[in-house]
Nucleic acid binder design. Structure first.
Length: 597
RNA sequence: GCCGACGUAGCUCAAUCGGCAGAGCAGCCGCCUUGUAAGCGGCAGGUUACGGGUUCAAUUCCCGUCGUCGGCUCCA
C-alpha cells in the first residue's frame, strides 16, 4: 500500500472495525484455551486483520467456526472498548503471564519500538484497551463499542504459521487471518473478489488451457511449457526481440555455467552464494550454474578494446538463470528455481548515463503498455546502509539520475529506502492488473560494482583508459513470472495477437470438413493461428470446448457458408457476428494483431 | 527452511468402523450428421505419491521421504 493511502487507512472507520474485530477474536481464543493461550500481536491489514497466538495445539477449520460463533456472541454483548493509559510497571504486572506482551512492554518502555515491533522515534505512552473480559496492550484506535461491529460482516479465513516478530530464529506462532467490513454486502463482495482471483489463478488456468506443467520427475520450481503456453511465450518474446532490435540493442548468447573464479570476481560468491546451487566439478575445476547473466556479458565487453565511440553498447539476452529458492516459497510461475530473464546490460560513458536511463525507462513502459498494462507505479530503491559495495558518495549521482528519469517519465514513484541491491540503486516498476493487484516486473539497476571488479575500460578521446558505467535491466523480469501475470491479467483470455489459437473452425457436419480444412489453409496463409475441430461431435459441443479454451474466434461452417464461401463468426464473448467472407475475416484479425487489440 | 493442511485414473472428486478401489469429464471405438456453451452407447484407464511398520487384512492406523497448497522468513 502506498504511504499516503496507508495513512488514510489508519484514520478510517474500517481500520478501527478490523482492529476491534481482532480483539474480539483474541478474546474468543483466550476463552477457548483458558490460561494456556499466549497472545502476540493483532493488527489490521489490507482487507482484514490477523492475530498471532502461541497455543497448546494446532487450530482446525472447525475451531475457526466455533470462534466465529463465540465472536458473534461477544459482539451481541455490546461491550465498550475502554482505553486506559498505564505505567510500564503496571503493564508488566497486568501481563505477567503473557511473555510476548512483556517483550513488547520492554520495547515500549525502552523506546524505539511500537507494540508491533516497528521502529519508532519517540517513547510512546503505554495504553490498554478492554472489552468485556479481555484486555490487550494496544495503541488503538478502536470503535467505541462492540455494537459498532457488524456480526454479519466478518469472517475468519485461515490459520497459518508466522514467526514471532518475523524472525525465523524465534518461536513459530499460529496466525489467524480474518476479514472484516462495515456491511455484509462489503464482505460478500470481498469474498466474491477472492473467488474471482482464484478462478484466474495461473496455476489453474495453466492446467485448464494446457499452457505449462510442472513435473515431479523434473523437480519443483522448474517449468515445462506445453505448445499452447510455448506459443504465447514465443509471440511475447518475438515481439520484444523486434522492439529491442529497433531500440538499439544487440543480441548476445551465453552459457549456463561458468568457473568459480568468475563468480568470485563478480562478487556473487561473496554476496549471493546462498542463492546459488552447489558447484559442478569439471576436470578439477569448479563451475557454478549461473544465477545471473551479467558476468558473461561483461566478458563479451572485455573481449576487445572498446573506444568511447563504441559506447553505449547494449547487450540483450533471454538468459536462463538458476537460483536456489527455499522449497516453501515456490509458487507456480511466480516464484521458480529456473527462469529466463529478458536481460540486458548497457555499457556507457558517464555522460551518457542519464540519457540511457531515460531511454530504458521509456522503452520499458512502452513494452508493458503493448501487453495491455496501463497502471504503473515506480519505486526507487536507495542504498542499504549495511549491504552495499563501494563508497557511499559514489551512490549519489546514479541515484539522482534514476530519480530524474522518473520525474521526466512522469509516472508516480516512491522511494524504497535501503532496498537497493548491493551493487547499486535501482528503479523497480510495478503494475496493476485487471483485478487491481500489484506486480513487480521491470527493474533498472545501476551498477558501479562490476565495472570495477572486472576492470572494465574504454579508451577516451584523450587516449586514456576510462571506466564505463553499467546498467542492468530486465523489463518483463522473467518470462515465467511475466507469463503468470499475463495469464492472471487476462484470466487466460489472451488478446488476439497473443492467443495461442486465434480461431477454431467448426464444421457442422462431417460433409463440411473439407471446406473447413480448405478455409483453415487460407487463414493460415493469412498468418492466422487456426485449428479445425474434426471430431464428429455436435457443433454445440465444439463451441463449448472452444469457449472454455478461451479461443477468440469460433468459425462455424455449414452448407450455407460452403455455398457462399463464407464463415459464420462467433466471438468468445458469445456475440454472433454472422457470416462474412474469408478475406474480410483475415483482414479483421490482421488489424487486431497489428494494433494489439 | 519453518508451522499447518493435503496427496486416490489425464482432470474434478467418492469409497461407512481397517474388509474385492468407484463416478463424471477427458481419451479410444461405434452410432447419430447436427446451425451457436455438453447427442447416445460401449471400451479402456490404478503399485491409492514413494519407502517402511502394525494387522489375517491398510486408500484407511503409525513412522520416514518426496510433492502440492495456505502463510511466515527470504527474493542479491
Amino acid at each position: 500500500m502506498a504511504a499516503g493511502k496507508k495513512e488514510q487507512y489508519v484514520e478510517s472507520t474500517l481500520y478501527r472495525v478490523r482492529h476491534s474485530t481482532a480483539h474480539v477474536m483474541a478474546q474468543a481464543v483466550m476463552e477457548m484455551f483458558p490460561g494456556e493461550a499466549k497472545i502476540a500481536i493483532g493488527p489490521p491489514i489490507e482487507d482484514g486483520f490477523y492475530y498471532d497466538f502461541d497455543l497448546p495445539r494446532p487450530l482446525t477449520p472447525e475451531d475457526l467456526e466455533s470462534l466465529e460463533r463465540r465472536m458473534r456472541e461477544i459482539i451481541a454483548g455490546e461491550f465498550a472498548f475502554e482505553r486506559q493509559v498505564i505505567s510500564a510497571d503496571e503493564a508488566r504486572q497486568m501481563f505477567s503471564d503473557q511473555p510476548y506482551k512483556i517483550e513488547l512492554i520492554e520495547g515500549l518502555d525502552a523506546g524505539g519500538f511500537d507494540e508491533y515491533g516497528e521502529p519508532i522515534d519517540e517513547k510512546p505512552e503505554i495504553s490498554i484497551y478492554t472489552q468485556d473480559t479481555f484486555t490487550d496492550l494496544c495503541r488503538g484506535p478502536h470503535v467505541p463499542d462492540t455494537k459498532n461491529l457488524n456480526p454479519e460482516a466478518f469472517k475468519l479465513l485461515n490459520v497459518a504459521g508466522a514467526y514471532w516478530r518475523g524472525d525465523e530464529a524465534r518461536p513459530m506462532l499460529q496466525r489467524i487471518y480474518g476479514t472484516a467490513w462495515e456491511s455484509a454486502d462489503d464482505l460478500e463482495q470481498y469474498l466474491w473478489k477472492l473467488e474471482e482471483a482464484q478462478k484466474r489463478d495461473h496455476r489453474r488456468l495453466g492446467k485448464d488451457l494446457d499452457l505449462f506443467t510442472v513435473s515431479e520427475a523434473v523437480g519443483p520450481g522448474l517449468i515445462l511449457w506445453s505448445p499452447r503456453g510455448g506459443m504465447v511465450r514465443k509471440i511475447a518474446e518475438d515481439y520484444c526481440r523486434d522492439e529491442h532490435e529497433r531500440g538499439g540493442y544487440e543480441f548476445v548468447y551465453s552459457p549456463h555455467i561458468g568457473k568459480a573464479h568468475l563468480w568470485e570476481t563478480s562478487g556473487h560468491l561473496d554476496w549471493y552464494q546462498d542463492g546459488m546451487y552447489a558447484p559442478l566439478d569439471i576436470e578439477g575445476q569448479q563451475y557454478y550454474l549461473k544465477p545471473m547473466n551479467c558476468p558473461f556479458h561483461v566478458q563479451i565487453y572485455k573481449s576487445r578494446t572498446r573506444s568511447y565511440r563504441d559506447l553505449p553498447l547494449r547487450y540483450a539476452e533471454w538468459g536462463t538463470v538458476y537460483r536456489y529458492e527455499r522449497s516453501g516459497v515456490l509458487h507456480g510461475l511466480l516464484r521458480v528455481r529456473g527462469f529466463t530473464q529478458d536481460d540486458a546490460h548497457l555499457f556507457c560513458r558517464p555522460d551518457q548515463m542519464p540519457q540511457e536511463i531515460d531511454r530504458v525507462l521509456e522503452f520499458s513502459l512502452n513494452i508493458l503498455r503493448a501487453f495491455g498494462f496501463k497502471d504503473f507505479q515506480a519505486y526507487l530503491s536507495t542504498r542499504n546502509s549495511e549491504k552495499f559495495a563501494g563508497d557511499p558518495a559514489e551512490w549519489e549521482a546514479p541515484t539522482e539520475a534514476l530519480r530524474e528519469a522518473l520525474e521526466r517519465a512522469q509516472i508516480p514513484y516512491e522511494i524504497d529506502e535501503g532496498e537497493a541491491t548491493f551493487y547499486g540503486p535501482k528503479i523497480d516498476l510495478k503494475l496493476r492488473d485487471a483485478l487491481g493487484r500489484e506486480w513487480q516486473l521491470s527493474t533498472i539497476q545501476f551498477d558501479f560494482n562490476l565495472p570495477e571488479r572486472f576492470d572494465l575500460a574504454y579508451v577516451g578521446e584523450d587516449g586514456q583508459e576510462h571506466r564505463p558505467y553499467m546498467i542492468h535491466r530486465a523489463l518483463l523480469g522473467s518470462m515465467e513470472r511475466f507469463m503468470g501475470v499475463l495469464i492472471e491479467h487476462y484470466a487466460g483470455a489472451f488478446p488476439v495477437w497473443l492467443a495461442p489459437v486465434q480461431a477454431v473452425l467448426i464444421p457442422i457436419a462431417d460433409r463440411h470438413q473439407a471446406y473447413a480444412q480448405q478455409v483453415a489453409a487460407q487463414l493460415k496463409d493469412g498468418g492466422l493461428r487456426v485449428d479445425v475441430d474434426l471430431r464428429s461431435d455436435r457443433m454445440n459441443a465444439k463451441i463449448r470446448d472452444a469457449q472454455m479454451q478461451k479461443v477468440p474466434y469460433m468459425l462455424v461452417v455449414g452448407d450455407r457458408e460452403a455455398e457462399a464461401e463464407q464463415l459464420a463468426v462467433r466471438l468468445r464473448s458469445g456475440e454472433d457476428l454472422g457470416a462474412i467472407s474469408i478475406s474480410a475475416f483475415i483482414e479483421r484479425v490482421q488489424t487486431e494483431v497489428r494494433k494489439h487489440e
